[in-house]
Design a protein around this nucleic acid. Sequence first.
DNA 1: TTCAAGATTGTAATGATTACAATATAAAAT
DNA 2: ATTTTATATTGTAATCATTACAATCTTGAA
Lengths: 138, 138
Amino acid sequence: MENLFRILKKANVPPSMQRIKILEYLQTGHNHPTADMIYQALKGQMPTLSKTTVYNTLRILVEHNLISEFRMFENEVRYEYDPLPHIHFKCDRCGAIYDLHTGAGMLESGMIDGHRITCRQINLKGVCRACLKGSADA
Amino acid sequence: MENLFRILKKANVPPSMQRIKILEYLQTGHNHPTADMIYQALKGQMPTLSKTTVYNTLRILVEHNLISEFRMFENEVRYEYDPLPHIHFKCDRCGAIYDLHTGAGMLESGMIDGHRITCRQINLKGVCRACLKGSADA
DNA sequence: TTCAAGATTGTAATGATTACAATATAAAAT
DNA sequence: ATTTTATATTGTAATCATTACAATCTTGAA
């Protein structure tokens, strides 16, 4: 809590209750929520919270590199706190999104075909481990 | 044209003028259009064309594996005809999307961490070759 | 030729996100 | 501490891609 306060301060984001709570939410096991999921989760403890504030705050946190955003196969942006490079895997059946820290080393080169690569999005789809275990077509 | 007719037939998609024209558009150098771009491009030669038909047709063509769809960093679906596995690269400056057939071999394994991978989306961002050539920070 | 299935169309609805203006809060200056 | 000023938060309305739906048109089979 004090911790989050300092993190925001250090990143030149003036701390506020809303910003602390949203950043805290992303740092405590809630891995790939949408803006609406965050809003739904926090409005209980912050009754005056506005969805616009959630969107504004997420944009600011992304701009200051405190969190990152990505899209998978749906029309919705997901947010995460995870500084390590990794791959997102979404299960076709249960919809869960897994972080794969395996093999994240490929594509490390900053130049491909003369283009300068500054941002990578690697999205996979399929059937996840848990679903495979419970079905016949494993 | 007759060619496209046969392709649709073979894929169990009853051919129609709309379907032929949309598939033709994707096969003739128009690489990553959105549904709206296709609609705008074709309504000149097909005045009665409806945007709903464009969406319906694209969905059908995707379902029958005649084309594929993907999203990059914006809220819009893009469509392409390109059977080869490749990586999409979007230039931060001009917005152009390049197909990179370089190094598409990595991530080839069908299993990662016990998940079955059936679909891959690899999106890169940065500054493209053409933009770099015309600027000082190359 | 008739009929039925499927294709196309236009309009209205949806859902995520953004724009905007008003209010509230916090920081700076006196 | 009080005033002033900048910034943050909020609610409502707008936007934009996409989808739902119902009506009309085509087409292939009987």
